[in-house]
Design a protein around this nucleic acid. Structure first.
Lengths: 204, 204
DNA sequence: ACTTATTGTTCTCCATAGCGAACCATGTTA
DNA sequence: TAACATGGTTCGCTATGGAGAACAATAAGT
């Protein structure tokens, strides 16, 4: 391998690093504030640059959101790996863990919902998010397979995740309950769905 | 301190790093070949870039030479520090050490001579070299003071260094002697100058 | 309803860097 | 002496990355 590309590679690394600085600034702000209250000018100020410069590195604000979301997903993966290593866990444990993660990382949940619901995202950012979602579902499915065994079907992973997401979405800002009560109630709902399949107590 | 300058600082560091790559390539070639046989195109090839690009970082070839020389001087300083730390050394030891350094690092000696003799160096490079020379003499004088004591005069440092440089210059390519013989003879000359002040064996 | 702010994004301008080709002076050769 | 080669340096062009100002659309205030 010739060193002919050393300079060019260096340049590439430098660019990645600068991109990371911007992304870190954004993630920091997303973590501390409601994400749709964080504007491009805030991110620029945090990173110490001009708003226009951000567009040299990211095509749109939504693209930054997607990247931030991807970082969160990697954190989730780490967390899941730790769970699976430390002890024999059940589907119930997993469900509760997912609920807790969303409640402890509301910005992440908000961003996810943003991509899942908003019709104003550019096609590029939407594509990016779709890839991320696919990656996440795949990863999550792998973990579940380790609990459920070989003959596990992806459909169940989809159902599992979607139902929990729905629980959080529906009751996150439910009035009349404090944070802790809401959390416990979501746990109960998640367990109910898992054990009873969300079936109503009436004849089929 | 605001992080407003983070990006700019980063850029600056990156530039320094790229400059270092070029300089390292040059130093490597200078070490392995006669320095005036190393052209800009060689350095460019070694660094994996175009010759023209070098001029984005260095104003002239002589400027690169000066920088390379400066690196060598730092190595010399390290070597001297080691000598001074490990044992009680005399002026004779120092003289022999300097001779040996020049013989072991001929490219360094050549570069030094280039700046000291050539009339074709640009004023900028010449200035740079003068600063380097001044720095070196100062540094060297400090070390000598540690041996010679407080009431040491710079003139003696100048005389000391100049005479040894002259010895090496005069006998480096002296015909009829192999490397080892030449080295030994230079040692003898250096000692003679130090102990007898280069005085001829005749009445003053 | 009409201004005013806010916000994501684009525009324009400028400095930095990279390269291939040319320039130019010097040394070499036929 | 004329052609050629060599080697340091410059030129012209292009791509990248930075900033401030402007744009367009939406939200807010009166």
């Amino acid at each position: 391998m010739k060193k002919r590309s050393l300079f060019k590679n260096l340049r590439q690394n430098e660019r990645e690093l600068r991109k990371t600085i911007i992304l870190d600034a954004a993630v920091k702000l997303f973590r501390d504030n409601v994400f749709n209250g964080v504007g491009m000018r805030d991110i620029a100020a945090e990173a110490g640059i001009s708003p226009a410069t951000i567009y040299r590195y990211f095509p749109s604000r939504d693209d930054i959101l997607a990247e931030a979301l991807l970082q969160d997903i990697n954190k989730i993966e780490d967390r899941l790996d730790n769970m699976l290593k430390n002890r024999q866990i059940t589907a119930k444990d997993l469900a509760i863990a997912v609920v807790d993660y969303f409640l402890d990382n509301e910005p992440t949940f908000h961003m996810m919902c943003h991509f899942l619901t908003s019709g104003t995202v550019t096609p590029e950012a939407k594509n990016k998010f779709n890839l991320i979602q696919e990656y996440f579902i795949n990863m999550f499915n792998m973990k579940i397979k380790m609990i459920a065994g070989k003959n596990h079907d992806v459909v169940h992973t989809h159902a599992f995740f979607a139902s929990i997401a729905g629980v959080v979405l529906t009751f996150l800002h439910y009035p009349g309950l404090n944070k802790q009560k809401k959390r416990e109630y979501m746990h109960r709902l998640a367990l109910s769905i898992i054990t009873e399949g969300g079936r109503l107590p009436m004849p089929d």
